[in-house]
């Protein structure tokens, strides 16, 4: 077994260590900014079945009644956020999802075949398949 030359008996981080710690910390901050930046959406895209019902500006206060498979869905746009207020479905998952405001968020009412998709300046992926 080969013996290596002894290291200095000192437990404080050395100059290089400090540099590495600072650089790593900077990297972690950059990673948080890169991956955890959530952009506020500017537009709302509503689909019924396979058709796009319309694209609406989010910066307004407006109530929409979209006709779906089962009946009407009541959607509220309120200054940058949107939600299902009421929907003609049994489980009301879409209503319980509450307000949406970030780009890439979606609320879907499957029984009524209506979906809300929030769009930002650049489109984000909701999922990838291959």
């Amino acid at each position: 077994m080969q013996q290596r030359t002894p290291l200095k008996f000192n437990n404080k981080p050395l100059a290089g260590d400090q540099l590495v710690i600072i650089a790593s910390f900077a990297l972690v901050i950059v990673l948080f900014q890169q991956f955890w930046s959530f952009e506020h959406a500017s537009k709302l895209k509503i689909r019924q079945g396979s058709k796009i019902v319309g694209t609406y500006d989010l910066d307004q206060t407006r109530e929409l009644h979209i006709h779906g498979e089962l009946g009407d869905s009541h959607i509220i746009i309120n200054q940058g956020k949107v939600r299902f207020k009421q929907s003609s479905c049994n489980n009301q998952y879409c209503v319980h999802q509450g307000w949406l405001s970030l780009a890439g968020q979606v609320a879907i009412c499957l029984p009524n075949q209506i979906s809300l998709q929030l769009v930002g300046a650049k489109s984000t992926y909701d999922s990838l398949n291959y």
Partner: peptide, 18 residues
């Protein structure tokens, strides 16, 4: 291979963890 004078086990540990 980093110079031992400036880089200790702390550096190696951080790099290994990343």
């Amino acid at each position: 291979h980093l110079p031992k004078k400036y880089f200790s086990a702390i550096t190696l540990s951080i790099l290994a963890a990343f």
